[in-house]
Design a protein around this nucleic acid. Structure first.
Lengths: 161, 161
DNA sequence: TCTAAATATGTAACTGGTTACACAAATGTA
DNA sequence: TACATTTGTGTAACCAGTTACATATTTAGA
């Protein structure tokens, strides 16, 4: 008897396995930060990197860059603001927008965080056995999803059944 | 400028991409069922398949087979019971256990559901271009995760930094 | 110039996972 | 046989995403 029914399910188990894996990464990353007495949370990483690269961005720009919904970003940013990692300034030219920047506190902590992230990258490389096959396969799947999403394809294939 | 910062991030973007993809599959599957006026929810699929294969199972057995926590299964099963898709009988030999089986209603709907699942499988095969490379790569990653989890590896690699 | 449409942000309700805890029943052992 | 341990189920509080809706500001066009 197989140990893992989702794997046994083949194609049909894919979705569940993606969820299970991403959850596992998330919870373990959270534990890692906690055990290192860091206030940082798992997916602040991508916000930090974006704001390092671009200096200042708005909620909508971040949502676009990460391809997440804007309420997801609002929640993330609010927590980072509350903890003092992000400053938000009303745009003087457009009073709808808030320009978000990393705070001094965030910048001061960056060296420590970068050591963590470097360890994370190395751990991932190790787990992927230093090749990018999985990343490439994922990128193809993302591209297929962008061309025609899963639901559209299901509908089409159901009609022709 | 890249369209998708998570892809640009390389290894570090992997977790977010897994989450994004699995969420997309989940929401689209949910929409598919809704538009076909089905009461079924996305991950009931795996429960149906398990109970077809094994006739009767307990919460704990299902949790083991799917490698999810037992409270996750309790929630799923409760909803399926409420909608009348699962019957639960106290085990006469062990009064802690409830033997779960598909209800008559569930069995009656199976042909329709199987048509949906077949469409889903075909759609996934199409998106994976009829090869199992992604599934194999995922299985390797799952195996690495089982050998030594992400957090353990991060800790080890941080110390040697 | 006035107003309709588009854009930026924020809020509410929902979903499907998690860990931590509680408790009853069964099992194993002194 | 009694009691400690293990096992099965259930509940509570939390988390990170979603869609749908609300509101304010800016932009565009008659």
């Amino acid at each position: 008897m197989s140990e893992d029914f989702l794997i046994e399910m083949g194609y049909a188990g894919l979705t569940g396995r993606l969820k299970r894996l991403s959850d596992a990464f998330m919870y373990q990353t959270r534990d890692f930060y906690r055990e290192h007495d860091s206030e940082i949370e798992p997916n602040w990483h991508m916000i930090f990197l974006l704001l390092q690269k671009n200096e200042t961005m708005t909620v909508t720009e971040i949502a676009d860059a990460l391809q997440l919904s804007h309420p997801a970003i609002v929640k993330l940013i609010n927590k980072m603001k509350k903890r003092g990692y992000i400053n938000s300034n009303l745009d003087p030219k457009d009073n709808r927008r808030y320009n978000l920047v990393l705070s001094q506190k965030a910048k001061k902590e960056l060296p420590v965080l970068e050591a963590y992230w470097e360890a994370g990258n190395k751990a991932l490389e190790e787990m992927l056995e230093h090749n990018t096959l999985l990343l490439e396969q994922l990128e193809q799947l993302e591209a297929r999803m962008a061309e025609a999403d899963f639901k559209t394809r299901m509908d089409k294939l159901l009609i022709n059944e």
